Computed example of a mutant assay.
Amino acid sequence: MRIVPTAGLRLRFYTDPGEFLAAAGDYLAADPVVSTVVTTVAHRLLSQRAEGISPPDGNWWLVVSDGCGAVVGAGMRSAPYAPYPPFLLPMPDEAAVALAHALHERDEEILAINGALPAVELCAAELTRLGGGRVQVNQHTRLHELGELVMPSPVPGRLVVATEDDVELATEWFAAFAGDADEQAGRPRDASAHDVPDRTDMLRRLHAGRLWFWVDGTGEPVHLTGANPPSFGVARVGPVYTPPAQRGRGWASNAVAEVSRRIQAEGTRVCLYTDQANPTSNKIYAALGYRPVVDMANLVIAH
């Protein structure tokens, strides 16, 4: 752990996700929907460590405390894909600026930064003031939570749990989702950095039973929906992918609705992210009963 004091605030950097959760767990659990990405990753890395898998070098976890020692913000740098963007949860404005100074002093190369507004904007702006470059918006995202589920008009077929036998198709569709999401939002294909699981990671997801196919009336897979294991009582749905030839038939609405229904039936809250530039997905989820919680952004620092 490394402590950076600043103007009544304290930034504490951890390299151990377990120590991070011990320090910030109560704060994260108080708003588990907003903190879903950070808590999901921290708990996943702890589970992998229990399996003998060491966390990657260079990861850090941030806890921001006020003058009384109360936690008022958090973040992490644990993305497994280049350029390894930090992810920030809401925090005081001065903490976001102080974080930029701390990262600059640590000589960390920050070429992208994701997370809650306005923290990411303030941190990125200060990073460019200190180190040069300019901030560009790569993606505006919005986090939604499901209220009362509204079931869509039924379509043929049913939801089935993906199995180890589906590893190739699931991996192919994960990769296709990444590129198609950019195209649907009007960005160049593969403009965004995405975490596409390798075979080992995909098998781990399949063994956990958190990937589902919607199969049509003939039993043919026509859609994929995933969800993370619950963290502090919240599960996050994603990815949601329908191959181009199968779109517009209601597969996604029915699959997401059924996955969401099953998660809620377990007593777990359900959330998901949308790309604000994709009107189709935003319309689908709003119709199912998902309501906006917080706006976030993925920013790039160009030099």
Rank of each mutant, 00 (worst) to 15 (best):
G238Y: 01
Y27D: 03
V97N: 00
V150Q: 09
N59E: 13
P243W: 11
H104S: 15
P83H: 01
R261S: 12
R49L: 13
A255G: 15
P229Q: 11
H144R: 12
L211R: 06
R262Q: 13
N278H: 05
A245W: 11
L149G: 00
L45C: 03
P83Y: 02
L149K: 00
A96F: 02
E121I: 01
M151D: 05
A125M: 08
P83N: 01
A42P: 10
E266P: 04
N298I: 07
T242D: 09
G132F: 11
T128W: 10
R77N: 07
D275E: 12
A277F: 04
L224I: 10
A82W: 08
L299Q: 02
D66T: 03
D190G: 05
C123L: 04
N138M: 14
L122V: 06
N254R: 04
E183W: 03
R49G: 15
P230F: 05
Y290P: 00
A23W: 01
V234Y: 10
D93C: 02
P86T: 00
G226N: 11
H303R: 15
T200V: 15
V135L: 13
Q246L: 13
G219T: 07
P85E: 03
V234E: 07
K283M: 13
L62P: 07
P90R: 02
D295K: 11
P85N: 05
D190I: 03
T280V: 14
D198S: 06
T171V: 06
L288H: 00
L159T: 01
W61G: 04
R158V: 06
Q276E: 15
F87D: 07
D201K: 12
E19N: 06
V33G: 05
A175F: 04
R210L: 09
R10V: 09
E51V: 08
Q136L: 15
C68E: 15
L211Q: 11
H194Y: 15
A193S: 14
R12T: 13
E220R: 14
A70H: 12
L206G: 04
G233K: 06
Y27A: 07
T141C: 11
L127N: 04
F213T: 08
L111C: 10
C68V: 14
A82Y: 10
S54C: 12
N228A: 15
R106L: 11
F177R: 02
G75R: 01
A23Y: 02
H101C: 03
G147M: 05
W60S: 04
P32F: 07
P230H: 05
L89K: 02
